[in-house]
Simulated assay, not measured.
Amino acid sequence: MDLISEVIRTVRVGSAGARLIRQTDPRGLRFSAFTGSGFHIVRRGTCWLITEHGEPVRLGPGDVVLSSSGAAHGLSATPRVLADLPECVMGPVPPEPGPADFEFLCGAYRFEHGGAPQYLRALPDLLAVSPEYERLPRLRALMDLLAADIAAGTGPGTGATLPALLDLVLAEVLRQWHDEQDTSGRPRADDPGIAAALREIHENPQRAWTVDQLSSAAAMPRTAFTRRFTAVIGRPPMKYLTTWRLGRAARLLRESDAPLAAIARQVGYTSEFAFSAAFRREYGTSPGGFRRTPVLLAGG
């Protein structure tokens, strides 16, 4: 099962934003924690990734930092303490004109309700990736397109092009990170039994699934299935089922004008009341309130 594709589908519920930052202040910048996921791409110069507890990590042109679930961090010309860095003012702020010692792109998905997808929350808070651009020329091309799209400003079509480019960059960075990891001895997300159960959940969320039914779909004993599923996905089967159903409901609320009762049935709830209660627990707001909240193009 392609979990990276599921991540991309899930983050689209949030507000997509991006900006270019040119930095001349040697003190660097601090990025406060936020509800969402984001990344930085070094375009020019070198710097250090600063975290609250880890050792500084040196970055150079082309390196990417992935903030999987919005953890606080900083970028600085020299190793420093995170609290000593000036805070970056978020929003659609234009880059400083003229040459700069350090230049980087920021992209982010911000969630008004709920948090980052479970798959991203299961990753380390901050990942530094050095892509192999010779092997992945499309990633370089995507980064150049993202930079050009940001430079073009909020013109016609930006509401479609910017989120699409962020989706593609995030997918490529996650692929690259996974390629760099030693996966020996660890559960694989393409485990045939787990993939079969996930496929059933994703394609038929309206069914009244039980753990026994899902373990049968996976052709595994119930106890072994539950243990394996939790190890691979990061949460038990029924918890994942609930999260998937409500995530799909959130997308339907954003992308369609279907009545709430119809959406409830499509994602496996027998009543609008039960659906609304579960949705509020997951997203902190009612389905109607979620639908009325506009998705904005936010600054990175």
Rank of each mutant, 00 (worst) to 15 (best):
R30H: 10
Y133W: 11
F229D: 01
L136D: 15
T46K: 09
G193E: 04
W177T: 00
D212S: 15
V267H: 02
F273S: 15
I233M: 10
R121S: 11
H178S: 00
C47E: 09
P61G: 06
G45K: 03
D63E: 11
R235C: 11
P56R: 02
P192N: 03
A83T: 14
L126N: 07
D149V: 12
E200V: 03
R19T: 07
L127W: 04
R19A: 05
H178R: 11
L260A: 12
Q176D: 11
L75A: 12
R110W: 07
A189I: 08
G284V: 08
M143E: 15
T158Q: 14
S69Q: 11
I201R: 01
P86R: 11
W209F: 09
T35N: 13
G74V: 05
W209C: 01
S76Y: 02
K239W: 11
A116I: 04
F290W: 13
S69K: 12
A100P: 12
V93H: 07
L142K: 05
R265S: 13
I263S: 03
G300F: 02
F275I: 08
Y269H: 14
E282S: 14
G114I: 01
L146Y: 05
T161S: 14
R222L: 10
C88H: 14
L142I: 07
R22W: 00
R227Y: 09
G153I: 15
L139Q: 14
R135S: 15
A148R: 15
D257P: 07
E6C: 00
M90T: 07
V267F: 03
R110L: 13
Y109C: 06
R248C: 03
R222E: 13
H202E: 10
P124N: 00
G155K: 13
L297H: 04
M238Q: 11
R80G: 14
A261I: 02
P86G: 09
R199V: 00
D191G: 02
E132T: 10
R292K: 13
M90Q: 11
T24D: 15
R58G: 15
G60Y: 00
A71L: 12
S67R: 13
L174I: 04
M238K: 12
R228F: 03
H113E: 07
S67P: 06
T230W: 15
W244M: 00
P237C: 10
P259C: 05
L139E: 12
L297I: 14
P221G: 03
G14D: 04
A171H: 13
C47F: 00
S215W: 06
V89A: 13
A83P: 06
T223A: 09
G115Q: 06
R292H: 11
I263L: 04
P192L: 00
E55G: 06
